[in-house]
């Protein structure tokens, strides 16, 4: 028999051990992503369908006036690209939520939660892993969009990177919070109807808000309350090397609230998983 039983381990963890744990969680997420090729393909095809078909149709009927950050008239494809980038991150966040519900049903989630590292650290590591995957998807989309003729500044991926990290964390933490509220995998369809579609359509992703305001002040008000609108605008401005402070503040605040909510939801003492009773996570 091998010598796996060791002397008593030292108390606490070193910084190096925290990094090993973080790397392990990111590595597993990356491996799963690589193994699930369909997930990557569908993540890429979804926004491309919007770009190739929807944007082509709307180019002639939807006028985009000169609004910041644009300094001239832009084609509809250019306008919609930040919204589609945010859409990739939105779907990825919800996909992570789905995968957490699946992991919980299959039991894999328990192995994460019985790790001796602090639970907040494990959940934040999982968020970082999911955000990294979403940024890889965005990078692939931006390359195809550029080949399609969408005119973006050559350094735009670098300037948008911090915004992608923040938006990825916001949408990932929202997905994590939702995953704690979903009892079964079958209930996930509700997330599509009640979270993804309303968030995406009631935002500035597909049309400027001044157009929405002209049509319906109520919908405009809803769009202004939607944190996804600010994620789209943060990405839009960042693509051109500009910073929209209001969007940054809203996205940072929403990220903080959702992350704290998710950590509390998975807290063994106070979490929603405990309160609703029944099986373990």
């Amino acid at each position: 028999m091998s010598d796996l039983t060791l002397d008593a381990p030292p108390r606490g963890f070193t910084l190096g051990q925290f990094l090993i744990c973080l790397r392990g969680i990111m590595w597993r997420e990356a491996l799963r992503f690589v193994h699930q090729r369909e997930r990557f393909v569908s993540a890429l095809v979804r926004p491309l369908v919007w770009l190739f078909i929807f944007a082509a149709g709307f180019r002639q009927i939807l006028g985009v006036s000169i609004i910041p950050p644009y300094e001239t008239y832009v084609l509809y494809e250019v306008y919609v690209t930040p919204g589609l980038i945010a859409m990739i991150q939105l779907f990825n966040g919800m996909q992570s939520s789905l995968s957490m519900v699946y992991d919980r049903e299959m039991g894999n989630m328990r192995m994460l939660l019985v790790s001796p590292f602090p639970r907040w650290f494990l959940l934040v590591s999982k968020l970082l892993a999911s955000t990294t995957v979403s940024i890889l998807q965005v990078a692939a989309f931006m390359i195809v969009a550029w080949l399609w003729g969408v005119d973006l500044p050559p350094w735009s991926f670098l300037t948008v990177l911090p915004a992608l990290v923040l938006c990825g964390l916001m949408l990932g933490s929202l997905g994590m919070l939702l995953s704690s509220m979903i009892k079964q995998l079958e209930n996930f369809a509700g997330v599509m109807n009640f979270v993804i579609f309303p968030m995406f359509f009631a935002s500035s992703a597909l049309y400027p808000l001044w157009l929405v305001q002209q049509s319906s002040p109520v919908v405009y008000f809803i769009c202004r309350l939607n944190p996804f609108t600010y994620a789209v605008e943060l990405i839009r401005f960042s693509l051109y090397g500009k910073l929209d402070f209001l969007s940054l503040a809203v996205v940072a605040s929403a990220t903080t609230v959702f992350t704290i909510g998710a950590i509390l939801a998975y807290d063994p003492a106070r979490g929603l998983l405990v309160r609703r009773g029944g099986g373990a996570p």
Binding site: F13, T14, G16, Q17, F18, I20, C21, R23, G24, I25, W27, R28, L31, R32, H35, Q36, M106, G107, N108, R110, M111, L112, S115, P116, F117, L122
Partner: peptide, 23 residues
């Protein structure tokens, strides 16, 4: 309940667990 990640190899499952313990 079974808690192995079915998409990963046997060794990858063990390495993931080791990482969750800082190894």
């Amino acid at each position: 309940a079974r808690t192995l990640d079915l998409d990963l190899s046997v060794m990858d499952n063990l390495l993931f667990h080791a990482a969750l313990h800082g190894i």
